[in-house]
Simulated assay, not measured.
Amino acid sequence: MLVSLLRTVLMYGVILLAVRLLGKRQISQLQASELVATLLLSELAVLPIQEEGLPLWRGLLPMCALVLCELGASWGMLKSGRFRKLVCGSPMVVIQRGKVLQGQMRRLRMTTEDLFEQLRQNNVFYLEDVAWAIIETNGLMSVIRKPEEDPVTPKQLGLKVPFPGLEVAVISDGELSRRSLALCGKEEAWVRRRLEERGLSERQVFLMTVRTDGKYRILPKEPRA
């Protein structure tokens, strides 16, 4: 039992390291090669955990080879458009100049329900508002609205809107982030002065955000019931 527990912890660490090496892409944005690598990694990790008589290297070696294959494939896609097209395919247009391309939808095995679901995820609720819709190689849809349906921007109105700056969380659940402080150009002493003005300590703060223009917001922790 103890051996299985130790192997589980070790495999968890190895998979975590492998995923970090493969990149930070979200699960919903995985390309085909990345999805295959992720699935195979999980399958390979199970073998040393279940089979206590199996040497660890018998599981670790294929996992290392798999990570190297995916890194090699990523490098190949970066250097060659043809190789990327072979591995990931090409984006496919499903709505062109307001017309739904039924043939393309059949090739993608995409139902009308799928079409409307992805449009809604792009904050589009009426088919007549869409000029172009493209299914990207990761399966997500990119939508371009018709010009007359696009929201009016301040630039189109000739207005100058001040940029509020980047907002970052400098304190999260009582813990100060020095990395976030560097991003907003503030120091710990500045944060402590703001907390003292509110009569709070770091541990009493649930969330403190600071923008690069100097504005900040503090949310104290609520008392536990």
Rank of each mutant, 00 (worst) to 15 (best):
E43I: 09
E43G: 05
L44G: 02
L44Y: 05
L44D: 02
A45N: 05
A45G: 09
A45E: 03
V46A: 13
V46E: 06
L47K: 03
L47E: 03
L47G: 01
L47H: 04
L47F: 05
L47C: 04
P48S: 04
P48M: 04
P48A: 04
I49C: 00
I49Y: 02
Q50G: 07
E51T: 10
E51A: 10
E51K: 07
G53N: 12
G53A: 11
L54F: 06
L54K: 10
P55W: 08
L56V: 13
L56Y: 03
L56K: 01
W57G: 09
W57Y: 14
W57S: 15
R58W: 11
G59Y: 01
L60C: 06
L60V: 15
L61S: 12
L61F: 12
L61M: 13
L61Y: 09
P62D: 08
P62M: 10
M63A: 12
M63Q: 06
M63Y: 05
C64R: 00
C64T: 11
A65V: 13
A65C: 14
A65Q: 10
L66T: 09
L66H: 07
V67E: 02
V67C: 05
L68R: 08
C69A: 15
E70Q: 15
E70C: 06
E70A: 09
L71I: 12
G72E: 11
A73E: 01
S74F: 04
S74Q: 13
S74W: 02
W75N: 09
G76P: 01
G76M: 12
G76H: 01
M77G: 02
M77V: 07
L78Y: 13
L78K: 09
K79F: 05
S80D: 12
S80W: 11
S80Q: 09
G81F: 06
G81I: 07
R82N: 10
F83A: 08
F83Q: 01
F83D: 02
R84K: 13
R84S: 13
V87C: 05
V87F: 00
V87I: 15
V87G: 03
C88F: 03
C88W: 01
G89R: 03
S90I: 05
P91A: 15
P91S: 15
M92Q: 14
M92Y: 04
V93N: 06
V94K: 02
I95S: 00
I95C: 00
I95L: 08
I95V: 13
I95Q: 01
Q96G: 03
Q96P: 00
R97W: 05
R97Q: 14
R97N: 15
R97F: 08
G98D: 09
G98P: 03
G98W: 09
K99D: 06
K99G: 00
